[in-house]
Amino acid sequence: MSDISADTLATDRSSAPPKRRIKWSTVVDHSVLIVGSLFMLLPLVVLIQMSSVPDVEVIKTGPSLQIGDQLDDNFNKAMFQASGFSGENTGTSMLINSFILGIGFAVGKIIIGMMAAYAIVYFRLRFATLAFWIIFTTLLLPLEVRILPSYEVVQSLGMLNTYQGLIVPLIASATATFFFRQFFRSVPEELVEAARIDGAGPVKFFIDILVPLSQTMIAAMFIIMFVFGWNQYLWPTMITTDEDMFTLVRGIKQITQDLEGTNIPEYGRANLLAIIAIIPPVFVVIFFQSWFVKGLTESDK
């Protein structure tokens, strides 16, 4: 806000030749932001540096300023060399599983949420309020507090170590439904009336008008849900015991345990797997920043 005062002062004195002065408040602002950014960024730099040098080097000296030439070697190890007992969880297979979980979760949640929200907002239902409450109670209890019985349900349905068992129970919360309900309620009512006068039925209205209208909302929701699904840990840890079903984030547990047991811990491989687990969700968040921020700040309120 001091900038506003600076600006107004500057225009007042515009007749005088502009004199370049260092504004200490601006210096302080930038220093705080730079320190903050470094606090966020430095750990990642350390990981990258460590995965560029041979593992023996890491054990001797730890992180240093030197950038080695082992990056592609370690990358090959991380992506194609399997660890564990069955030898099936290479980085590639974990990466594929992570994408299946992230995308499957996001798409499933959005489709089911939009359908339910459409039914609640646009139809006259006798039990609409009841349905509303049944659905929105789920916002209150996160999966973590009912994890054990949920596991038992999935087990009794024979869905352990399957993608359905991984994805569907995570969808059982109403965040997307709530989000789309809020949005649909802000859509002008005239649209429905116009559509009805033109003879469009509910299905046509939904597909031809409401879905195109919600494009930005769908994109925002997709980003948030993709990151949320990708980053799931506790649930995949319980549901997947087959190593070829591991996701990258689930595999982190394996990776840390691998570091414990061996003589020369494979820091290069472990760090690269962690970096690979970070990159896709971070890229999505950075490249679709404005949608993501919009979705985040509007959905949770």
Binding site: M115, A116, A119, Y122, I135, V153, V168, V192
Partner: peptide, 25 residues
């Protein structure tokens, strides 16, 4: 919304997937 559709079966069909998942999981 005041203006809405009155089809009876469609909203139930739309709500069913969400309700089943919530009930089971």
């Amino acid at each position: 919304k005041r203006a809405g559709f009155t089809t009876a079966w469609l909203p139930i069909l739309l709500l069913v997937p969400q309700l089943i998942i919530i009930a089971v999981f």
